[in-house]
């Protein structure tokens, strides 16, 4: 029972990251209907930014979170405005596919050139502090990170629901032409949206640094899971992405514990396919 509780807690902690990644991916998809294939690599950039802030400027990883978010927001907005927005006009799916995939490859290689393929970690005074709750234990940075991402999720939800910019984002996502008709500058909204998505990926990376290993290919695993989260949680749904991420984290740790670590990914993907099929059937029946 203790082991089960511990595995659930572990699943919850890692699931939080899948949620955050999924939300970033989801907001981009919801508005622009494009899949951001370099989402994982943006997480990796977030990790290296945090590393740079910490190792070169001596800034604590948690204090670096807002800086990473801002940098990534600007990077994302620039990338959107200069490369993606012009491609959106072509209505070519392959164009956008290659653009985001290519950006991912570029980011990985740039990281390799600057930081080499060495694996790095960030250690702080509190990074190996372990908290015990009865029979279960958890690392302090994981608890703090989880708290931060809960706050971000709620803030994001309210931002989209109640703020003027959030409302505009939702308007563009529901009907881009209609939104333009009523005077919303959709290009600006695209920039904000993609910047927001990039910032969420960067923040995930920043929060991960205290208990994960930083390297140029660290993002791929998370990027891929973000896609699963988006599909399972429902396209465009922020709460959906949140719960799907947590579900995925729990599924992974429990499968690994009770079925076997070598079957971890297999079971996760099998479940993913089953969910897809069931949803498809439900949607077809509704139609």
């Amino acid at each position: 029972m203790d082991t089960f509780l511990q595995a659930c807690l572990n699943g919850l902690m890692i699931g939080g990251f899948y949620s955050l990644m999924g939300m970033g991916q989801n907001i981009i998809f919801g508005v622009m209907k494009i899949i951001n294939f370099c989402h994982g690599e943006m997480l990796m950039v977030g990790m290296y930014l945090t590393y740079v802030f910490h190792a070169w400027l001596g800034i604590d990883p948690y204090l670096a979170v807002p800086l990473v978010a801002l940098t990534m927001f600007l990077f994302g907005a620039l990338f959107q405005h200069t490369l993606i927005t012009p491609s959106l006009g072509t209505h070519s799916f392959t164009n956008l596919l290659f653009l985001t995939v290519g950006m991912g490859v570029l980011l990985t290689n740039v990281a390799q050139v600057i930081f080499s393929s060495d694996y790095r970690t960030i250690t702080t005074g509190y990074s190996s502090t372990i908290l015990s709750f009865g029979p279960v234990t958890v690392a302090l940075p994981k608890v703090v990170s989880f708290g931060v991402l809960i706050v971000i999720s709620i803030a994001l939800f309210f931002f989209l629901k109640y703020t003027p910019v959030g409302k505009k984002i939702r308007a563009v996502s529901q009907n881009p032409i209609g939104a333009q008709v009523v005077g919303i500058d959709s290009k600006k909204i695209y920039m904000i949206t993609y910047g927001l998505g990039a910032a969420l990926a960067g923040v995930s990376g920043a929060l991960l640094t205290l208990f994960y290993v930083i390297n140029p290919t660290a993002g791929s695993n998370f990027g891929f899971r973000a896609l699963i989260v988006v599909v399972v949680g429902g396209l465009g749904s922020i709460p959906g992405a949140f719960f799907a991420g947590i579900f995925l984290g729990l599924l992974e740790t429990l499968v690994s514990l009770f079925i076997g670590p070598s079957l971890r990914t297999l079971v996760v993907f099998a479940t993913f396919i089953v969910i897809l099929v069931i949803r498809q059937n439900i949607l077809l029946r509704r139609a």
Binding site: A7, I14, R225, E252, S256, S262, R264
Partner: peptide, 20 residues
């Protein structure tokens, strides 16, 4: 025998299996 998948984001369950 914990035959894990390399490069995963999390090894907590693998360690729990060892612990058990």
């Amino acid at each position: 025998t914990v035959e894990y998948q390399g490069g995963q984001p999390d090894l907590s369950s693998e360690v729990l299996t060892l612990k058990k």
